[in-house]
């Protein structure tokens, strides 16, 4: 599908919000893809990290907010650690999640989580998990 570009879209409120929340220089990304190359879950993503950076640049934010990839990020910080341009890609992911959550777009249904998992997994996992999946409202 083609992307139609214009000034309004490239500087939309969403794009600005992502910049504000992540504090990252999105436009300094030169698409080397090292973030994707080292991402442990890129194999499972519908939009891989470098594509995410690209789509943010192009202002295609809605596509990202409805992607599965932003929820698959494990926040292992591998992408940001290796970025030659010093972009903390993981913070851009977080910004996208934050926007989605603040708009009430939840990813999973807490009711459906298995009791076994909740019993066994350490609290940090539950908190980290829940925090990404359930908006506070």
């Amino acid at each position: 599908m083609k992307i139609v570009l214009n000034r309004e879209k490239l500087n939309s409120f969403y794009v600005q919000t992502i910049k504000d929340i992540s504090l990252q220089k999105i436009m300094s990304c030169y698409q080397c893809g090292k973030c994707t190359a080292g991402c442990p879950v890129a194999d499972f993503m519908d939009v891989v990290p470098n594509e995410m950076m690209r789509l943010v640049m192009l202002g295609e934010i809605e596509k990202l907010l409805s992607s599965k990839a932003i929820w698959l990020c494990t926040s292992c910080f591998q992408c940001g650690t290796r970025c030659p341009k010093g972009i903390e890609v993981h913070r851009v992911f977080e910004a996208l999640r934050s926007i989605a959550l603040r708009e009430g777009k939840n990813y999973t249904d807490i009711e459906k989580l298995s009791e076994d998992v909740l019993d066994e997994i350490p609290q940090q996992g539950i908190i980290a998990g829940f925090r990404k999946f359930e908006s506070l409202e």
Binding site: P40, V41, D43, F44, W71, L72, T74, S75, C76, Q78, Y107, T108, L113, V117, I121, Q124, G125, I126, A128, G129, F130, K132, F133
Partner: peptide, 19 residues
Amino acid sequence: SECCGAHISVSNPEVSLEC
């Protein structure tokens, strides 16, 4: 030093299992 899948176990257990 690869990621174990971390908290993805809560939402996508099959992905983190693979990791």
